[in-house]
Each structure stands twice: as structure tokens, then as C-alpha cells.
Nucleic acid binder design. Structure first.
Lengths: 167, 167
DNA sequence: TTTTAATTTCAAATATTATTGAAAGTTTAA
DNA sequence: TTAAACTTTCAATAATATTTGAAATTAAAA
């Protein structure tokens, strides 16, 4: 396999993986492209490489910036904007975990807490509902805290975690 | 909040959460419904509760069964099939983690391994590509192993993990 | 200023994914 | 067997999400 083929395969796999996890293809592919690029890329560069429109590129770049994994960069003497990806895989994972937690997991945990606190009336239906939603709440809350603590350990969190966990 | 409201809120939140993680709404909602139901439900029951068609119900039940988190159950003397959810939240998490790992993460790891093993030609482009895809490979592979080990610990994995990790 | 380059926005078009419903298939019982 | 009860399949339809492209906006240069 030569470079161009490998690169295309990487970009399309990354896009497909994103899709199965609720992240749109263009967003994942733009990220993939920037992640492997040794130099900052302009919007034109990205549009051309991925064959997508200006609007699409602009919107998804903004999302990536909102997620904290892509940054704008200005080239001296150049008017147009360039973009670079977060290059540290650890920081990338940290950022993605943080954002998904904040946007999706934590709101769901709040709902679980709410609904599991209704007054029971002694029927099997309500008792089971309360019991099961409480269990889910506990699991989600614990897993979420665990994730955030792992991910917030300053350096090499994953290595440290593995060492602690299996020694 | 009374039961009916809480129940609807739980089911719709679960559906919405599923959606943001690449799981279709009907599948997530059927699961939610079964998970809080003290008794097995028939296809009719599910269709009626969620207001979805027979075909949709049938297809998504099959998927849930494929994922290993819903089981068929036969009621003595009854011809039609009933369905129950995995009730143990720990087992539920284990199963979901296992399946997502197997279906999506592991194939991606294999691709990362492949593409990061191309021959470098000394240019910045290929060197960066190899370096970055290798880093991603290492991260994904380690995180995947960690996830599987956590999730395969016999009982109370999450509690054990937390204890180990933060003591 | 005014002009030009670059970016963003957003309604419309397209593509993708989910859902329906009825026909075909299966299984049990008569 | 045949009929009835139930489930699955899948082409058609609907719903949702993504993408486009051109007009509007913003920002830098002349």
C-alpha cells in the first residue's frame, strides 16, 4: 500500500467510524485530514482534498473548533485562515470525552436522577421503574466520573490508568 | 411528576441519547420500555406503547437480541412471543461495550495498524502520517483493551475499577 | 472610503436512514 | 392436511440529516 491509498483509507475509515458514533462524516474526515497533515490547511485545501463544498467545510470546521480539537492559525502575510488539528492524541481523547460527557451524558444523568425520584405508589410498575432508573443512574454517574477522572489525569492518563488497574 | 410522565420522559430521553450515539431511536426506546417493565411484553404491547409499526418492532427487536441485551420468552399456553430485557445494568454495559468494540472499534484498529505500516519515503507527509496513525493505533488499542478488561471483570466491575483506580 | 478577498449563513436540494404495511413465510393447533 | 395465529421481510414512503451554492457578511488592503 502506498501513501495515497493509505491516506484515503484512513480518512474514509475515520469518517465511517464517526458515523457509527453519531458524528457526521464530513466533520470526522476534516479532522482526519488535519490530524495527519504536517502543515496547516486552508479551507480551499480541505474542500479540494475531500471534494466537499465551501459551506460544508465552514460549518464543520466551526464544530471542530467548538469541540476544542481544531484551531485557527494565521500565516504571516496571508489573508486567509488556516486550520490545524490538536496533534496530541491524549489531549484529543480528553477533549472528546469531556465534550461528549458535558453535552450528552450529563444531561441524561440529570434526567435519570429526576425520573428515578418520583413517588412510588406500591405497584410493581412504579417500583420496578424506580429501581431500574436508579440503577441506571448509579451506573451512568459512576462511569461518567471514572471517565472524567481518567481523562483529567495530567499526562499519559491511559498508561497510568492501565498500570494502576492491572498491577 | 407522576409515573406516566416519568416513564415517557425516560423513554424519550433514552431514544434521544441513543440517536446521538448512532443507535436508532426505535431500538433504544424498545430497550428502555422493556428495561423498566416488570413483565415480559409482546410485540403488540410494544407497538402500542411506542406507537410504532409491526415491521419496525420486529426488526429492532431482532437487533436487540443480536446485541445480546433482549431475550425471547415463551409464556406457557401462549402462542405468541414475549420479550424481556437484560435486567442487570452491569451485564447490560458489558454487553454493549463488547459489541461496540467488536463491531466498530476493532475493525478500525485493524485499519490503523495497516495504514500505519506503509513504507515511509522520508517526506514530511508520509512521516507525519505514519507517526500520527501509529499514535492513534496505540491509543485505540490500549483504550479498547482497558475497556474490555474493565467490562470483563466478573462482578461489580465498575466499583472494583473505581476502587483500584483511586485508592 | 471603496474594493477585494475570504468566510459565514441558510433555504433549497440531495442523500441517508428509519418506518410502514401488506404479502410471504412460519409455526402451532384443529 | 388446512386453517389460524403470529412473525418476518422488503419495496415503497416518510422523516431526518447532510450538503450545496449563492447571497450576505465581515475584514483586510488599496
Amino acid at each position: 500500500m502506498e501513501f495515497k491509498e493509505a491516506k484515503n483509507k484512513f480518512i474514509s475509515t475515520w469518517g465511517a467510524l464517526g458515523t457509527t458514533w453519531g458524528i457526521n462524516k464530513a466533520m470526522a474526515q476534516i479532522h482526519a485530514l488535519l490530524f495527519i497533515s504536517p502543515d496547516p490547511l486552508s479551507m480551499e485545501d480541505i474542500m479540494e482534498e475531500l471534494g466537499i463544498s465551501r459551506g460544508n467545510t465552514s460549518m464543520n470546521l466551526r464544530q471542530l473548533i467548538d469541540w476544542g480539537i481544531v484551531y485557527k492559525e494565521n500565516m504571516p502575510g496571508e489573508r486567509k485562515e488556516y486550520f490545524v488539528s490538536e496533534k496530541d492524541v491524549t489531549e484529543l481523547a480528553r477533549q472528546v470525552a469531556k465534550e461528549r460527557s458535558r453535552r450528552e451524558i450529563e444531561p441524561s444523568i440529570r434526567v435519570l436522577s429526576e425520573v428515578s425520584n418520583i413517588e412510588g405508589d406500591g405497584t410493581a410498575k412504579t417500583e420496578e421503574f424506580i429501581k431500574k432508573t436508579k440503577e441506571l443512574y448509579d451506573l451512568a454517574d459512576t462511569a461518567n466520573s471514572l471517565l472524567l477522572r481518567m481523562v483529567n489525569q495530567e499526562q499519559n492518563w491511559i498508561t497510568k490508568t492501565v498500570i494502576k488497574l492491572f498491577k
